[in-house]
Write a protein that binds this DNA or RNA. Structure first.
Lengths: 143, 143
DNA sequence: GTTCGAAATTTCAAACTTGAAATGAATCCG
DNA sequence: CGGATTCATTTCAAGTTTGAAATTTCGAAC
């Protein structure tokens, strides 16, 4: 196709590679150090940010995963006592998912190392590089 | 943590979001228009670039997936007549995976639309933005 | 040439993920 | 009100993905 297409394709390949590699390293960190997985961490991170609870729908939209996926991950967290479903008082279709105190403590332990890992993974970039990527990608997403 | 950690974390979140969204759109395109999946497309793209064949190991390293994963995806492509395993003549442990003529034709049809999709997904970025991301991420990966 | 560690692949169980269908509940509107 | 539509969630089958174990082969050091 056009010149611009080729450039964007090249960028996409690079983006995908960097993301996959970083995900792999973070997965390894979570597995070796905390015996957990990336999807579990992602769900817990979302619940941590919104301490007052999230519905299943909010959760799956926030993490960009399917409804069915959110269901099973929350199922497992609940079975392990890290999260809890609380029926909504105003809408009998909905539930509010929250971290248990155990879940909150576990997440804080995981998050500290996670942040260290992310910093290590992108240590080669200058602060300006980091901000540039953030800004450009933010612009790309503006919907 | 430090200021730099927070910045990198923010960038990582953004990177992950953009990548997931784009993957979702590309997955949808491949499913609706070509009745195939992203992992199959990825494997076929790798085989297309290296027409003379790739070993299973090269394939999994190139795509950053596990060995076991490469095995099942190639299994399915082979069952559908799109790829073929050819035993290496020099190393009886290794195989060379190649696209069949049908696989090559199918990939070319898929790739054209894929490129259009990628271009559409990143249409909001200027050419300079695109090059900036590519350059910075290339620097981030230098190992 | 034997042996031993490394390499290439497959197999396997468990977890993840999707998209579609099913269920039950809320809302809208005539 | 009553019917239809939409919404929130779960269930389900099929496919993807991982990491570890098993198998077979290679290659290098003796």
């Amino acid at each position: 196709m056009t010149e611009g297409s080729k450039r964007r394709l090249k960028m996409w390949i690079r983006l995908l590679g960097v993301t996959r590699r970083a995900e792999g390293e973070l997965r390894e960190y979570l597995r070796l150090t905390h015996d957990t997985t990336l999807p579990r961490f992602d769900v817990m991170a979302a619940l941590y940010r919104r301490r007052d609870g999230l519905t299943m729908g909010e959760l799956s939209r926030m993490l960009l995963v399917s409804n069915g996926n959110a269901t099973v991950v929350v199922d497992r967290l609940e079975k392990d006592g890290l999260a809890r479903r609380i029926p909504s008082e105003t809408d009998r279709r909905a539930v509010s998912v929250v971290l248990t105190p155990e879940g909150l403590a576990a997440f804080e332990a995981q998050a500290a190392g996670h942040e260290v890992e992310v910093t290590r993974l992108f240590a080669r970039l200058s602060d300006d590089d980091v901000d540039a990527i953030t800004d450009i990608l933010k612009r790309a997403e503006k919907t």
